[in-house]
């Protein structure tokens, strides 16, 4: 207390305001930090636009619509990588969604005693802590040989079958779109589970009790009461997980095979925007750098769009559940 009083400046009776150098300095410092944060994003976007400008003015929209990536001839079109990004993240979502939802339900219901649920929850959180390269290494050693076998089998088995023939088309390799999607599915599981779980937990207990009181079974309650109420939260979780999958780089770069060929075959090597950047920036020069910057701009625009959409849905959810309470 005494220090507080000692610190009280000897306020001169005259004058509009006592001079307080340190507090003012601190306030200004905080303001500068806040401005710097906002400026960072603007700088980041501005710098990437500036660096990609030569490519934007040269290729325009054909950069997005053409399927040629030949740096030695200064031909750049990222369509294969956009298709690869979309396919790999959608398949990952398709694989992870049922699992993530099942875990979220498992964690929010009382099937098994709390300690067991805590172990599962810890496990899923642990998945988020493993570095992306370690997933990649695991994929190379464990998944790639398995997927190599699977790919060859699938190409033979689905030959001539209308849609499946396109999806499982030769050449089949261990490093493929599907291999990358499998690991992506694992990596987005924590995001999916955590947000879905909190949406399910936020459903008021009275709704559940009401449903049970009307004679509904547990799963009738889950499907007709809990999930519809938590639906916006689950949708938000799905969108945010999609954003994460689209931007994930290292594991994908290590497993997808990095081929610039346009393909819809899941068992063939492919590429994503992120894996393209990871592979080529280190040795790029001249126009290739500008083209890669353009690709980075596209990737950023895509993920920003998806993330803002997810964030908006999440906000809507929180407002809605607040209303029910």
């Amino acid at each position: 207390m005494t220090t507080l009083q000692e610190q009280r400046p000897a306020v001169p009776n005259s004058g509009p305001r006592p001079t307080r150098r340190l507090p003012d300095l601190f306030r200004i410092l905080c303001w500068v930090a806040a401005i710097a944060t906002v400026a960072t994003l603007a700088w980041l976007i501005g710098e990437i636009v500036r660096q990609s400008w030569p490519a934007i003015s040269k290729f325009g929209f054909s950069f997005v619509s053409e399927a040629k990536w030949i740096p030695s001839r200064d031909q750049f079109g990222v369509l294969p990588f956009i298709v690869g990004t979309a396919l790999s993240s959608l398949i990952a979502l398709l694989l992870a969604f049922p699992l993530g939802l099942a875990i979220a339900i498992f964690l929010s219901e009382d099937f098994l005693p709390l300690p067991v649920r805590q172990v599962v929850r810890f496990t899923v959180e642990m998945l988020a802590a493993i570095p992306s390269v370690v997933y990649g290494l695991w994929g190379i050693v464990v998944l790639v040989p398995m997927m190599n076998e699977f790919g060859r089998w699938a190409v033979k088995a689905f030959k001539g079958v209308p849609v499946l023939d396109t999806l499982f088309h030769a050449p089949a390799y261990g490093n493929s779109l599907l291999t990358a999607s499998l690991v992506l599915a694992l990596m987005i599981l924590p995001t999916l589970t955590a947000i879905s779980r909190s949406a399910l937990v936020a459903v008021p207990a009275t709704l559940r009790e009401g449903s049970y009181a009307l004679g509904a079974t547990r799963w009738e309650t889950i499907f007709r009461v809990l999930l519809p109420t938590a639906a916006p939260g689950v949708v938000a979780a799905t969108i945010l997980a999609l954003g994460r999958a689209m931007g994930e780089t290292m594991a994908v770069a290590m497993l997808i095979g990095n081929s610039p060929r346009l393909t819809f075959s899941l068992v063939s090597p492919s590429g994503t925007l992120a894996s393209l950047l990871a592979n080529q920036f280190g040795e790029a020069s001249d126009l290739q750098i500008n083209a890669l910057m353009y690709a980075a701009l596209l990737l950023m625009a895509l993920t920003l769009f998806v993330n803002i959409a997810g964030e908006l849905v999440l906000r809507y959810t929180q407002r809605r559940t607040a209303g029910i309470r």
């Binding site: 806040a34 944060t37 990737l299 993920t303």
Partner: peptide, 30 residues
């Protein structure tokens, strides 16, 4: 400004980590 900082922080969390590398490449490596 406070709302802008919160918004920007949220957006930055969603940006793929490789974009941070691209940015550093543009401002420090080149």
């Amino acid at each position: 400004l406070a709302n802008a900082v919160r918004f920007v922080a949220k957006l930055l969390t969603g940006i793929p980590s490789i974009i941070c590398g691209v940015f550093a490449y543009a401002v420090i490596v080149l």
